[in-house]
């Protein structure tokens, strides 16, 4: 079905570019990509970004999510907790809210 020519085209697709200033991503950090991957199976970053929790509560939440199937390498658990509780501590101000795009309808 897909000939060699098409095969070439699909390979070239791999060189697609994208740039995006995305305020709804998780903040930078060495473990960011892994946190993103583990959480993104079910959640967007927004639900994580709106939490403001102590290390103790973050630990409980992470362990609950691992129990519920989040893929976290046991070796990374401590780094996850550190990243989450440092990025989203109780005293950090809330993010601005995001609205569904478009004009209010009735």
């Amino acid at each position: 079905m897909f000939e060699t020519r098409a095969g070439k085209a699909s390979l070239l697709v791999l060189l697609g570019t994208i740039s995006s200033a995305q305020s709804q991503d998780l903040p930078a950090g060495t473990i960011q990509a892994k946190v993103n991957t583990a959480c993104a199976e079910c959640h967007d970053a927004g639900i994580i970004r709106q939490q403001r929790l102590s290390e103790k509560v973050w630990t409980k939440e992470l362990d609950k999510m691992i129990k519920w199937g989040a893929l976290v390498d046991p070796a990374d658990r401590t780094a996850f907790i550190k990243y989450l509780s440092e990025s989203f501590p109780p005293d950090k101000p809330s993010d601005p809210v995001i609205r569904v795009v478009g004009r209010k309808t009735r």
Partner: peptide, 17 residues
């Protein structure tokens, strides 16, 4: 970071998913 939910325009997005 546009979130589009037809029929729910202007609502606050607490979670997109």
């Amino acid at each position: 970071p546009a979130v589009s939910v037809p029929g729910k325009e202007g609502m606050i997005v607490r979670s997109g998913r």
